[in-house]
Amino acid sequence: MDEIRLRPPRHQVERRAVSYWLTNELASALIPAAILAVLAMLITPARPWLLLAMGAVLLIGVPYGIVVPFWRYRVHRWEVTDEAVYTRTGWLWQEWRIAPMSRIQTVDTARGPLEQLFRLASVTVTTASAAGPLKIQGLDHERAADLAARLTATAQANRGDAT
């Protein structure tokens, strides 16, 4: 008998998302490292410890920041059909989520400052569940706006309390 598997969602996120994630992850490693370096220069007695901490941040943060964005790009996918929203996220730990159109409550788009730089946006789809929303990151900002408009229209067509 054949085995059953989930097929990957149809669309990949924008290629630019990799650059965005790279910038984001590397910044969150390099900025603390830089602060630690400055402190190490200023505070002589604690210098070895501060340098050690800086080394640890760089040793973990930089490889993570370089590897994970590419890995994430291979995993993150999304798809919207007439019936449902379907996403795949994560890298080592992966998560597939399916929410039917009829149960969507709200649709939001969000653009952080760094996302704006890369002309990206994310779409957040909430249902009545307390388990948290579905999030599609790394979409082109115009495409995200279109998608949000389409989802909102569908959600409004299916009124009711969606529970």
Binding site: W93, Q94, I98, R103, S129
Partner: peptide
């Protein structure tokens, strides 16, 4: 009102 499938390595 939806399914979530999770898997660790």
């Amino acid at each position: 009102i939806g399914w979530t499938v999770r898997s660790s390595p």
